[in-house]
Design a protein around this nucleic acid. Structure first.
Lengths: 335, 335
DNA sequence: TATGATATTAGAAACGTTTCTATTACCTCT
DNA sequence: AGAGGTAATAGAAACGTTTCTAATATCATA
């Protein structure tokens, strides 16, 4: 009942180990006759190569690693789905680490012998630590922030462009007083979307108004409270439209507006970012920007393969989003 | 810039490789003085053990594998989240394979040297193939069907009980004519839920009526059509309540009922199974059975560890669900 | 002062591959 | 017939560990 090794196959086929190895790996050195015999014997014995042996020798593990702090929501599963499929296709394994612990991350980066590592939601990873990662020479791709060094690439959505598009879309519908609900100060996506928002206003000569910037922290409840506070406590006049930092935030925003008695999109328009699953089922359904997540997945693997096999240096790549118009936005009806 | 190995550490510390290995692994053989020195040197050189070398020698990989055909939805992420956390805690890696291809599955089962494998949504895996898996002696846990053999365990929700509970709940609300919308014939969960439904009827002396069994295949659209057909084409009188095979099916059912002009729960009650994320956001919110998914995750790992370390034989374990009453069910108002 | 016993360290084999080098057998050419 | 080339195969080293066995030093005991 012992594991059958290449040695057993060699013996059973009456050839040397090296010949067996060559035959199994499709080397052109070995005679067609013997190859056939060896393959037959291997199959008959149910031989499966021991990967530890192989990888020890070759120095590769054919193992990638996906480190993430958050496994919930459509973003994650779409990403992981496309990445896993690509891995499978290319004969790579994909290890999954779910953690927020920076030590765990760093430990897995340098210690586990992965051929490459993807990091999503590593906002907490400091420049300092990226340096260490770079020194460890592990091929790394950041999926949620823009950075590059010798061994580190990133592949992010063009949140700036998304922010710009969405704002322009609202402006084209006639909206002028547009409120932006931002996330946290140090979150790449939030910063970039806001930058796009501001530049779009500028492009259409609409004055930027500090009072129309509030915080939502990408959360439903927080946004709900912020919007309510803005309109009821601070008595800011109802803006023409709200740009929420993401879809979750948009949900909170819509709930708050409804609770205050406003109708969407008659009285006010709302947009989000991400196009999460429920966006389409909300009432009204939510206008949002959809990111080509599956494309990010396969492109990330492609980039990784180039880094692994052709020693391509780290670089930054960007992906463009797509506006999905639904029922939460409409023409501005106010004079 | 070469990888530093145990040999380098040994040389730098001026001791033998074996001593180094022992020191690093906390063997009591080595003198406290030398251990300290070796650890210091190892740290100084940034030594990280090569896992392929170690695993080749020890025959273990400390690597588990999660094979699934479907990575979408809350069920998956809750499961994977809890499992990954447990793995991390125990020093195991978790490989993720997303595939529907049986050959891929079988290949990964026997070939990749995982210490253990979890399979979710392997409905297609036949008895025949389970035999092969068993012969490969890879410790395996099935997460979605009930089966056991020497090296195969399963850890499933008690769908029979869930079906029974839900039916009893409706009966207690006064419903008598209860329609059951089943999934596919060969799906474990569907079979068991229906069995629970039938037994609950029996327990309360309510006659089982063939006409009240329709198909939904766990899908929204299919269910929508089935319900519509039942009520409009076949002109079956509106049942008091519908038990949908899962929440998705319940959504289709509710849409169909609304489209036909019925009010939920005034005219008719609807329940589902799973408690998916949107269940709570539907209108009316959906009464359903929630399974303790995170518990399934940690319990699965526990079971796996027992199989790996204590060579526990394969077995079947079950988890109980919890009824979540919401607004889609109400007291039966019909005479 | 020999004699074990003990504590510590060193040496070497082994895990299962791949791959470099060596060997063999056969063939072609002069 | 011998030289040289080619095709096929065999042998052996190496990858980085762990672990078994051997060696050495120290020490208490008789």
């Amino acid at each position: 009942m012992k594991k059958v090794t290449i040695k057993d196959v060699a013996k059973a086929a009456g050839v040397a180990i090296s010949t067996t190895s060559n035959a199994l790996n499709g080397s052109s050195l070995v005679n067609e006759e013997t190859r056939k015999k060896i393959l037959a014997v291997a199959k008959e014995l149910n031989y499966v190569p021991n990967l530890n042996g192989r990888y020890l020798k070759t120095g590769k593990t054919k193992m990638l690693c996906f480190i993430t702090s958050n496994v919930r929501g459509p973003y994650f599963y779409m990403l992981v789905e496309s990445m896993c499929h690509e891995c499978e296709r290319l004969g790579y394994g994909m290890n999954l680490i779910v953690t927020k612990d920076k030590n765990v991350i760093m430990n897995h980066m340098v210690g586990q012998g992965f051929d490459g590592v993807f990091i999503y939601e590593g906002e907490r990873i400091q420049e300092q630590e990226l340096k260490i990662i770079d020194q460890s020479r592990v091929k790394t791709i950041l999926l949620d922030r823009s950075y590059s060094s010798e061994f580190i690439s990133s592949l992010v959505f063009d949140s700036y462009q998304a922010g710009f598009y969405v704002t322009r879309y609202l402006i084209n519908l006639g909206h002028q007083r547009i409120c932006f609900i931002e996330g946290a100060d140090d979150v790449y996506d939030s910063i970039e979307r806001k930058r796009g928002y501001i530049d779009a206003l500028k492009a259409y000569d609409i004055p930027y108004d500090e009072d129309l910037i509030i915080r939502g922290y990408f959360e439903e409840t927080y946004t709900y409270n912020s919007v309510t506070t803005m309109l009821r406590i601070e008595n800011v006049a109802l803006p023409d439209a709200f740009i929420a930092g993401n879809d979750l935030s948009a949900i909170g925003c819509m709930k708050a507006l409804k609770a205050l008695g406003y109708e969407i999109p008659k009285d006010v328009s709302v947009v989000g970012f991400d196009d999460i699953e429920v966006a389409e089922y909300l009432s009204p359904s939510l206008t949002t920007i959809r990111n080509p997540i599956d494309r990010q997945g396969v492109q990330a693997i492609e980039l990784m393969m180039r880094m692994i096999h052709h020693n391509e240096k780290g670089r930054v790549e960007q992906l463009k989003g797509e506006l999905i118009p639904r029922k939460s936005t409409g023409i501005c009806l106010r004079k």
